[in-house]
Computed example of a mutant assay.
Amino acid sequence: MPFSAETCVAMHIGDRLEQQDRVGLFAHPKRPGIMLAVLADGMGGHSGGAVAAEQVIMRARQNLETYAPLHETPRDLLASVIDEAHTVIKLTRFTSEKDPHSTAVAFLLQQGKAYWAHCGDSRLYWFRGTDTASRSRDHSLVAELMRKGRLDEAGALRHPQRNVLLSCLGSEREPHIEYGVAESPDAGDSFLLCSDGLWSYFTDFEMASTIQAHPPRIAAERLIQLARERAGGAGDNISLAIVKLVPPAADASR
Rank of each mutant, 00 (worst) to 15 (best):
A104E: 02
A79G: 06
L165I: 05
P69E: 05
T103S: 04
Q55I: 12
L145C: 06
L169K: 11
M146G: 03
E97C: 07
V88K: 10
H139T: 09
K113L: 00
Y115H: 14
V164G: 00
Q62K: 11
G49Q: 06
R135F: 01
M43P: 00
G44F: 05
A104G: 05
L151Q: 06
R173N: 13
T87L: 11
M43C: 01
G149C: 06
N63F: 09
M43F: 00
R135I: 15
N163I: 06
H159D: 09
A68C: 09
L169C: 14
R137K: 09
L91N: 08
F127L: 10
P69K: 01
M43K: 00
V164S: 01
K90T: 12
D152L: 10
S102E: 06
T103Y: 07
T92S: 15
L64P: 04
D99F: 11
G149K: 10
H101F: 13
G44M: 06
G170L: 08
D76S: 11
G112Y: 12
D131Y: 12
R93D: 01
E172G: 07
K113I: 02
V164L: 14
Y67A: 02
S171K: 08
N163H: 15
T66G: 05
R158Y: 04
F94T: 09
N63L: 15
L145W: 12
T132W: 02
D99A: 12
R162A: 03
K148H: 13
N163S: 13
P74Y: 08
A52Y: 04
H139L: 08
V81A: 01
S102V: 07
R147A: 15
T130K: 07
H118C: 12
G45L: 02
M43W: 01
I82G: 02
D138K: 04
I57Q: 09
L64V: 11
V56I: 10
K148E: 12
R173S: 13
G155R: 09
L77A: 05
F127H: 12
V105L: 01
D152C: 12
C119E: 02
P74C: 10
P69Y: 02
L145G: 02
V142Q: 06
A133Y: 05
V81N: 03
D83F: 13
R162F: 05
L109Y: 06
S171T: 15
V81E: 04
R150Y: 14
E54L: 10
H86Q: 05
P100V: 10
A85E: 10
L166D: 01
S140K: 08
I57V: 15
K98R: 15
R150M: 14
D131A: 14
H159Y: 14
